[in-house]
Amino acid sequence: MSVLTNNLELFLRLFGQTLQLFAISAVLSLVLGTLLAALRVSPVPVFRGIGATYVTVLRNTPLTLVFVFFLFAYPLLEILRIEPYTAAVVALTLYTAAFVCEVVRSGINTVPVGQAEASRALGLTFTQMLGNVVLPQALRSVVPPMTSTMIALLKNTTVASGFAVPQAGSIRDALSEQGDNVLFGLIWVAIGFVVLVMPLTYVQQVFEKRWSVAR
């Protein structure tokens, strides 16, 4: 217990960093992932190809390698200088968006094809059909797997430890420098993650309940 109470400020500050990394990457990857899913179901073959290629490349690459690229390789290209923190956000976003895309696409596939046909027959454009008819219905079946993807993102933020971007995963380093008990420190970090994930599970239940009555 003393490991936690003696270093409360450290724990709070670094878990705060974790939350911030998670929140920014979550919002960005949800937006990007949904756009990618729209590409993957688009009637234009080139768009479908772009979406499929993106997913294949990013989903099949280890997250650590994506980090390595944006923190070490990308700066060598000298296009636009970015801070390590921004690079971490970019890596997490691009990686997670591939998973979000597949979750959204699987949701789109659960919507009966007649819904899209009726929209087209009424003269809705592809974007209008997706936004007004298909995605709102796809969201319902998407909630549980999307929550899992977001939980994975939250935990994946710790990969940033290896790249000098401070967050909860860096607590161990700080403790060991001070000569504190690292084992108990890590147990508290683990408990911290359990506590952070619980609200996500709660949000999942709320959405599942709300969207199940509205039909």
Partner: peptide, 20 residues
Amino acid sequence: LARLRADVGMVFQSFNLFAH
């Protein structure tokens, strides 16, 4: 095509009302 479809009403065997 979307514009033209707007002028052609269609009724399906399985209704296809928007469920949500």
